[in-house]
Simulated scan of single mutants.
Amino acid sequence: MKALTETMARALVEHPDSVKVTEQQHENTLVLTLTVHKSDMGKIIGKQGRIANALRSVVYAAASHQDKRVRLDIAE
């Protein structure tokens, strides 16, 4: 999940070296936190959050075959 999220985010931003994804395990939930350069936040979120929702949809679909839940948080 981490590699998938990084790959998608790097393709969207102007500062791909600033993209960082961290994983944390909480009970049965895997929490992925996506951090990007401050100037790239708008590109990751998109108009009305459409890009962020699309990223989450792809990650959730990729995780659907696992027994644990996945959550994608976007941080500055």
Rank of each mutant, 00 (worst) to 15 (best):
N53M: 12
K38H: 13
H65G: 13
E76M: 04
Q25L: 11
S18R: 03
G42K: 08
D17F: 12
T7S: 15
E6R: 05
L12C: 04
R56A: 04
L32P: 05
T29D: 09
L30M: 13
I74A: 09
E76G: 13
R10W: 08
Q25A: 05
Q48M: 12
A62W: 11
R71P: 02
V21P: 13
V59T: 03
I51N: 14
G49R: 10
K43T: 06
K43H: 10
R50V: 03
R71G: 00
G42F: 05
T33G: 04
T35F: 02
G49Q: 10
K68E: 06
I74C: 11
A11D: 03
P16W: 12
E6Q: 03
T33Y: 04
D73K: 10
T35K: 14
R10F: 03
V36D: 13
S18G: 04
A9N: 11
A63F: 02
H37T: 08
D67A: 14
K47E: 07
A54P: 05
V70T: 12
P16F: 05
S18H: 07
T35W: 07
L30C: 08
S18K: 08
E23R: 09
A52Y: 06
E6V: 03
S64N: 12
G46M: 05
K43N: 11
Q48K: 15
R71S: 13
K68G: 00
G46V: 01
Y60C: 01
I74N: 06
T33M: 04
H65A: 10
E27C: 01
V31G: 05
V13W: 13
D40M: 13
G42W: 05
A61R: 04
S39T: 15
D67E: 14
K47P: 05
D67M: 02
K68I: 00
K47D: 08
G46Q: 03
I44M: 14
K38E: 15
A52E: 02
M8Y: 06
A11H: 11
A9Y: 07
M41R: 06
N28W: 07
Q66E: 09
S64E: 13
E23K: 05
V13I: 07
K68Y: 01
A52K: 03
T7C: 11
A62L: 00
L72R: 00
